[in-house]
């Protein structure tokens, strides 16, 4: 039945999709929302004649789920965060970029070349890197904000006016920093404390939202919110009096990467796109737009002055940082339980 269905489907697809698929050169990108300026895609199309089709996701986990649910083989490229690159690799979902396939590979900064989630950059190139912390509306709260207490033990003014990212990995990693316990700990007491912390903090949170993390701060729907540094800079540019916090307990850092997916339908075009995204000029245009930081050499000359000096991109000395770690299956099961308990 399987073959029969497939044959019928293929025949139908030929008749139905004949006009749409008229041998158009394209590349299909599975990307975060609001993370790619249209102008850059247009520039790529103008230079190469390849059209970019883009789908969006709102969390690393949602992207993984969709790829697992049968989307692998339909996308060429995706943009996972650091730890998700490692997971996708373990899942066998990444294609290998052979030596010499990328002519601009040398542009990758040394610091981001031999990363532990993809040693030697066999499957990925840097996209942007930045940090995850939280921002507070200074009109609503004037006190000290350089502590994760703002999220997990908030002052009276902020109670019930906090948005957190709808992402298990980010929330539990941030909570681990607050408690000063290692991420993905398998110590039972520590896990119980983690569970108790987020359970208790929830009553002070008004929403779990990643997509609107910026919008709720700008519109004033919340007074504090977990957010990425570039997003916070954009919120400030859009008129919100928000300050991005550098908590003493530490903050999360991340690097997003463009990966070549397994069974990419337009592999050649995908490689061209990767090369395009390694050109310093293009990366600078991207960085000026996203307000994060680049992982490619030669970008700084093209950067906006405002971005170079922005408080969101210049952490004070001595802030400790941590990447999100990949938990083993057993700890992940406990994390899942904590998360479901949190949202029940």
């Amino acid at each position: 039945m399987k073959t029969m269905l497939k044959t019928t489907a293929a025949a139908l697809a030929l008749t139905v999709g004949a006009t749409a698929a008229a041998a158009e050169e394209k590349v299909v990108l599975y990307h975060w929302f609001e993370y790619m300026p249209q102008e850059l895609l247009d520039k790529f199309t103008a230079e190469t004649g390849i059209k970019v089709t883009m789908d969006t996701f709102d969390s690393n986990e949602a992207m993984l789920a969709s790829l697992k649910a049968g989307a692998i083989g339909t996308y060429d490229l995706s943009v996972p965060g650091d730890y998700m690159v490692a997971i996708l690799k373990n899942q066998g979902m990444l294609d290998t970029i052979a030596d010499g396939e990328l002519k601009n590979k040398a542009n990758i900064s040394d610091q981001w070349l031999d990363v532990d989630f993809d040693p030697g950059r066999m499957h990925s190139i840097p996209y942007q890197w930045g940090s995850t912390s939280f921002s507070v509306n200074r009109d609503d709260y004037q006190g000290d904000i350089q502590s994760t207490d703002i999220l997990f033990n908030p002052p009276e003014e902020l109670k019930g006016r906090i948005n957190v990212l709808d992402s298990q990995a980010d929330v539990l990693a941030m909570a681990s920093l607050h408690l000063g316990i290692p991420q993905c700990t398998n110590d039972r007491e520590q896990l119980k404390a983690l569970n108790a912390l987020v359970q208790g903090a929830k009553e002070n949170w008004t929403s779990f939202n990643s997509d609107t993390a910026k919008e709720v701060l700008v519109s004033g729907d919340v007074s504090a919110g977990m957010i990425w540094n570039g997003f916070s800079a954009k919120a400030r540019a859009e008129g919100a009096n928000v300050e991005y916090a550098y908590p003493e307990q530490g903050m999360l850092v991340w690097m997003d990467n463009i990966v070549l997916l397994k069974d990419a339908p337009n592999r050649e075009n995908a490689l061209k796109f990767l090369d395009f995204m390694l050109e310093p000029e293009n990366v600078a245009a991207l960085t000026n737009w996203t307000q994060y930081s680049a992982g490619v050499d030669g970008v700084s000359d093209h950067l906006d002055e405002a971005l170079r000096t922005s408080p969101e991109n210049n952490p004070p000395a001595g802030v400790s940082t941590a990447f999100i770690q990949v938990c083993d299956e057993q700890t992940q099961a406990v994390y899942d339980t904590i998360w479901t308990n949190l949202k029940k």
């Binding site: 489907a9 139908l12 139905v16 999709g17």
Partner: peptide, 12 residues
């Protein structure tokens, strides 16, 4: 269903 019969998702 589409996943178990290995049917690639798309327009069809």
């Amino acid at each position: 269903f589409f996943n178990s019969i290995g049917f690639t998702r798309g327009y069809l």
